[in-house]
Design a protein around this nucleic acid. Structure first.
Length: 542
RNA sequence: GGCCCGUUCGUCUAUCGGUUAGGACGCCAGGUUUUCAACCUGGAAAGACGAGUUCGAUUCUCGUACGGGCUGCCA
């Protein structure tokens, strides 16, 4: 059953309903698609990815070999802890989460920390925090790839004993020299180890790595749900290293073993791994394991079209939280980046869960667009449940290191939320528009507001205030009083609005004056109006 | 260098060989209004290029250009 905890944008009752029907959809789909583990196909005819989305999809049903024991979809997100969770990683995680949870499957989290030099616990924490903010909860424990090293090595040794792998005694210098020369001569830099067929008896007593015996002719076809069939000639593949000379496994071995052991049915990851998939398939084949369904998604580029990297405009997920985007908006935006469901742009988590599928993923890289994020973000804020929104606002405040709202202010905030949330794209904007709630008397108007508190305006306020004293404190009542007043003075209501805003909020940009009065209540409203009418405003800088 | 992938408005995308190539963000104009915003209406805006297949190609094929990825005892 998909988790609902995150769905702050929907009416809880409705969501529960939607999700229970979703559970059924998920069930059917799970049976249908379940783990369509493909055999390694040698289709000599099909060697280009000429299949369109629908065909790619139909392949799934058509050629599926056998479902896993449980028939359940299992996906995983496997970041390497070398930095924060950037936007591309976040989206990969989202896709995996959506795919699994949308069909009642499991979403696993594995930290690929086999590179001890570059892995750090801080990075792991940052990634975990980013996922937590985005609400992408995983099943089971977070696993460390490094901790499976023994198991990985065992697989390498099994392959060695079965003659599917061999010891290679070539030194790193030797190989580096070879590559350099090959490159300078414009030749292939693929290293062909001379040790592949050397008898054990002739092995020296020196450090060695274990390399897989890659097939040297024929082709390997990656049946990718996003990219179509991708054919790679086996002579382009080298005998990759499985175990380093210090006995530790390399990533390429570890992923395969872990994905297999964890029962991963669908590997959804960045297309920088597309070529790797061919190499990894050699291990699946050698071990006689079922190959998972591949889905290599295009990378996200920066606004300038260049690759997004830590040095190039990529920000950690938590940076977006600090900028004040609601997680639901972020999820919506990220889902829509590279994936589509017809013309749907703005949708809830429940809808995304129901709609998300591999055949909706595009093949070309997308650029990150802040404007659209903001727009979606604003729409999510507008439809959010008031209480949930207030909570997320508090989280935002504490994430940015600011003081949370006290109980009095947050109570006022929640009554005001209805007139605030429809006009804010981000939390800072929401806060700005909520100045009338947050600020205490005496209010210090900003420059624009101060202009609306000149002598004439203050005079108007002075005369209006007594009328409000006995007004019925409802929208209609307030509109009637101010309307009558404006008529009597032969001024447009618009003339009064500016001063009222300035007096009530100290700002020129606020919710409707009536809403502010209603939220503030008679006493506070009159107090603010009197205060503003009585003295020339001190102007706040800026 | 070798191999692999990609290319529709500025951006995200729709399109199952026949559409005035649709939507969304942004932008511009107008309207409404209680400033700003929000909102409403309208507008400008795209098939990288060249061949081929076809009665017909954005769609299928090939080539070119451009972009990206991989090519590690990194992940």
């Amino acid at each position: 059953m998909p988790s609902l905890a995150l769905n702050s944008t929907c009416d809880p009752g409705k969501s529960a309903q939607a999700l229970s029907s979703l559970g059924q959809i998920a069930k059917t789909q799970a049976t249908l698609l379940s783990c369509a583990a493909f055999r390694i196909l040698p289709p000599f005819g099909i060697c280009r990815n000429t299949l369109d989305r629908r065909q790619r999809y139909s392949i799934l049903g058509y050629e599926k070999v056998k479902p896993t024991m449980s028939g359940q979809v299992v996906t995983r997100f496997a970041p390497s802890p070398t930095g924060f969770l950037h936007i591309g990683g976040a989206r990969t995680a989202l896709f995996n989460w959506l795919f699994a949870r949308g069909r009642g499957g499991k979403f696993l989290l594995r930290i690929e920390d086999t590179d001890r030099e570059r892995s750090s616990p801080e990075a792991t924490d940052a990634i975990l925090q980013g996922l937590a903010w985005l609400g992408l909860d995983h099943d089971g424990d977070v696993t460390s790839q490094f901790e499976g090293a023994e198991r990985h090595a065992q697989v390498a040794k099994q392959l060695l004993s079965e003659g599917k792998a061999y010891k290679c005694f070539a030194s790193q210098d030797e190989i580096a020299a070879f590559r350099e020369q090959a490159r300078s001569e414009g030749k292939s830099t693929l290293y062909r180890s001379p040790w592949r067929d050397v008898a054990v008896e002739s092995h020296p007593d020196e450090p060695y790595v274990i390399r897989i015996k890659a097939p040297q002719d024929g082709t390997t076809v990656i049946r990718d749900q996003v990219q179509g069939d991708v054919t790679i000639r086996n002579d382009q593949l080298d005998d990759m290293i499985l175990l380093r000379s210090d006995g530790t496994p390399v990533y390429m071995l570890a992923v395969v073993v872990d994905d297999h052991d964890m029962g991963v049915t669908h590997v959804i990851r960045g297309d920088d791994h597309l070529n790797n998939a061919a190499r990894q398939m050699m291990i699946y084949q050698a071990m006689g394991w079922d190959v998972p369904v591949w889905a290599h998604i295009p990378l996200i580029h920066g606004a300038d079209g260049k690759k997004l990297s830590k040095r190039h405009g990529a920000l950690g997920a938590e940076e977006y939280q600090k900028m004040g985007y609601p997680a639901a908006g972020m999820r919506n935006y990220l889902a829509r980046l590279g994936w589509s469901h017809g013309d749907d742009e703005f949708f809830s988590d429940a809808q995304a869960l129901e709609w998300f599928d591999l055949d909706g993923i595009g093949k070309s890289p997308a650029r990150f667009d802040t404007k659209k994020l903001e727009n979606l973000s604003g729409q999510h804020i507008a439809v959010s449940d008031d209480a949930a929104l207030l909570q997320e606002l508090q989280d935002f405040l504490s994430a940015t290191g600011e003081d949370c709202l006290g109980s009095k202010k947050s109570a006022l905030m929640s009554t005001a939320m209805y007139c605030l949330k429809e006009r804010a794209k981000t939390f800072p904007e929401l806060l700005e528009k909520a100045t009338f709630v947050i600020a205490d008397r005496p209010l210090i108007p900003d420059q624009k507001a101060a202009k609306n508190l000149d002598a004439v305006s203050r005079c108007i306020l002075k005369e209006l205030t007594p009328q409000l004293q006995n007004a019925s404190w409802s929208r209609d009542g307030l509109e009637a009083v101010t309307g009558t007043f404006a008529e009597a003075k032969e001024i447009k209501f618009g003339k009064m609005a500016g001063p009222l805003r300035a007096a009530l909020a100290g700002r020129a940009v606020t919710p409707s004056v009536f809403d502010m009065m209603l939220v503030l209540g008679r006493e506070e409203t009159l107090a603010r109006l009197n205060e503003a009418a009585d003295k020339e405003p001190e102007v706040q800088d800026g």
